[in-house]
């Protein structure tokens, strides 16, 4: 099932368009801002789109009916999709994290710790999965992207130091929570 879900992700042109633009914009922004970590503050939007696409693309052309008739165990199916998405996202997130670090080092001559690379990778992966979970719940790419980006770009700056702050620690709580809710709803509702 993981291979099937990975096959779906990789054969969707939108996946590559999104990743391509995200990486390009990230590199460009890193040069402009010249501070490794902060370009991710913007390019994370691309990963939200990637996550939302992964789940919402099921609802184009009635593909969900095919998915659920060939993989009727819904919790297994959606979990397989989450895993496939992580397998695709982690390498891309690493590229984003490393490109930021390498460019910053080259431009500023400062050293970034490996820990930062790991944190950025983890953060970007969590954001992608949050996009996927919200996508699975609302079943509409634009709506899911608007909700998650609205949260990350508008809500989180207002609620720093609360449990809703969008840092890697709070996301490590909220993302699994939403992934779980999405599994539960996906299992129960009529497709």
């Amino acid at each position: 099932m993981i291979r099937a879900e990975l096959s779906k992700l990789l054969s969707l042109p939108a996946t590559w368009v999104t990743l391509g633009w995200t990486l390009a914009v990230n590199v460009l922004l890193t040069f402009v801002i010249a501070v490794g970590g902060s370009a991710v503050a913007y390019s994370q939007a691309g990963f939200v789109v990637l996550g939302a696409l992964a789940t919402c693309s099921e609802y184009t052309g009635g593909q969900i009916r095919t998915t659920l008739t060939v993989m009727p165990r819904r919790v297994h199916q959606l979990t397989a999709k989450y895993i496939a998405l992580v397998a695709l996202t982690v390498p891309a997130a690493l590229v984003v994290a490393l490109s930021g670090t390498v460019i910053t080092m080259a431009v500023l001559g400062s050293w970034a710790v490996p820990w930062e690379v790991a944190e950025v990778t983890a953060y970007v992966t969590l954001v992608t999965l949050l996009g996927a979970a919200v996508g699975a719940l609302v079943r509409h790419t634009l709506a899911a992207v608007a909700l998650v980006i609205g949260y990350l770009f508008v809500v989180t700056p207002l609620v720093q130091d609360t449990v809703f702050a969008g840092d890697v620690v709070t996301l490590a709580f909220w993302t699994p929570a939403f992934l779980g809710i999405a599994l539960f709803v996906h299992r129960l509702r009529d497709a």
Binding site: S7, S57, G62
Partner: peptide, 23 residues
């Protein structure tokens, strides 16, 4: 079921490929 049951931006072969892989 109604329609093609496939995402419109995939090729027919790519659609059949993921179904084949699922089983």
């Amino acid at each position: 079921l109604d329609g093609s049951g496939a995402h419109r931006s995939r090729t027919g072969r790519a659609h059949l490929r993921w179904v084949a892989r699922s089983a």
